[in-house]
Design a protein around this nucleic acid. Structure first.
Lengths: 246, 246
DNA sequence: TCAATAGTGTCTCTTAGACACTATCGT
DNA sequence: ACGATAGTGTCTAAGAGACACTATTGA
């Protein structure tokens, strides 16, 4: 940032928030975590569902990302998710209380041992299922959150074409068929088994672990784990868009 | 955004700015526009070079992007550049004056008829040449602007692999050899002519116009124009990383 | 006719899709 | 043995790199 004015603070400041699009795979579906806005009168959009988020706590949060991590932890207990900044949205009109800017992050977490924690406001948190291939929930959300959700889903889908992102939606140990299914759920289309396995294996983003699934109905499957859970890997080549040629 | 607190405004607000990474191709080089910070004591980083930017004017700017466009216009006179949000950077420490968040945009503009306008502070604006293949200027910038510039260059390079972005660095009418050269300047490596032309032409992002270059030394070249100047097009397939296989 | 740049044709190698095939489990 | 899912081999087609080739200008 730079200051082009001589006066320092008298300029009115927009207010700043952080919102989260928290996604997971549950019940063979992509799901997003929403919270219900308090019904208190005076609050904007009372009773509507919204993305979890809130103000930056300048005393507590050292950085924007810290703030996002804190909010994620408060809601889900998850400590180290895949977290990525989606972008920021600011305008005079998006919040009836005044000029506001929100920093949107999206998080991918596995659906294992997550205990949703109601916020301090006794608001309820719940998972909402996203229809296959859709980029919205087909219902109104508070503020511009429906647009933010759509942007997050589009970003996820486009990155999935050339990254290992869906692995973050699964437990630490997973099989290739499970990973393939996660890709299919996110993309909203079927993926060819042989090409999928070649691609994922050739990219060397996952590591075989000396274990197989047991207690399964039929043939057990090899278990894998992300090689580097901290970092997202990019594939050398992208998925195609289905059929080749034309 | 959502409010999880009952209290409304007593929470301290970070201050919010918009910064711009304005890039063009000049002198067969990628160049970035910087402004010199005022030498006034009391101002942070006096005399250092910085990205152009400043506070949001909540009275004047309807949205974040409007604010970015206004600042670009004020500095360069350019009205409709390629403009994309890079991301936001916020922390307690990036500005000595307090918790701040900046929204970084990057703009690609053609080097034609641009008259740099000094800011109201009598600060000077100048183009700085980015060394081929480098992601920084090799000198200190104010605030965290060196990091912001690096992020912008990395984003540009990665998007160039699969989009028509470099066309926005050229005048409206350009030849394929010129476009190829723009790709090479951005990527910092040579690009194979035949494959390049096939790819760009097959992607149908540019349109032949019924004119050729004249007054040129040797054989004239066909002129082209972006088909849709407003929208960025994505190629079906990415550039490779140079030699194949290996 | 030559130098120089614009633009094309074609060979090869790699890889994604398709799909049939084999492998390994519980019952 | 059989059903079901896990996992592999192989054929084909298309795109990218490489590079030699042709085309069109000014001098």
């Amino acid at each position: 940032m730079t200051m082009d004015r001589r006066v320092l603070v008298p300029i009115e400041r927009p207010f700043v928030t952080v919102d989260l699009v928290i996604l997971t795979v549950r019940n063979d579906r992509l799901e997003v975590l929403l919270v219900r806005r308090p019904a208190t009168t005076g609050e904007p959009y009372p009773g509507l569902w919204a993305l979890p988020g809130g103000f930056i706590d300048v005393g507590q949060d050292a950085t924007l990302e810290d703030c996002a991590r804190r909010k994620l932890r408060e809601k889900t207990g998850v400590e180290s998710p895949y977290l990525e900044q989606l972008g920021s949205y600011g305008s005079a009109s998006r919040d009836p209380r005044g000029w506001s800017v929100t920093q949107v992050y999206f998080a991918l977490i596995p659906d294992e041992g997550i205990a949703l924690r109601p916020g301090g406001n006794a608001d309820t948190a719940a998972w909402w299922s996203i229809p296959e291939g859709s980029t919205n929930l087909g219902m109104d959300l508070a503020f511009d959150h429906a647009a933010l959700l759509t942007a997050a889903l589009e970003r996820l889908r486009s990155k999935v074409e050339y990254t290992s992102l869906p692995a973050f939606l699964l437990p630490r140990e997973f099989t290739l068929p499970e990973l393939q299914r996660a890709y299919e759920i996110v993309l909203g289309r079927e993926v060819e088994k042989s090409a999928f396995r070649r691609r994922v294996l050739d990219a060397e983003v996952i590591r075989k672990i000396p274990k197989k699934t047991r207690l399964t109905e039929r043939r057990p499957a090899q278990l894998y784990r992300l090689k580097d859970e901290a970092n997202l890997k990019t594939f050398a080549r992208a998925f195609g868009q289905g059929k080749r040629g034309g």
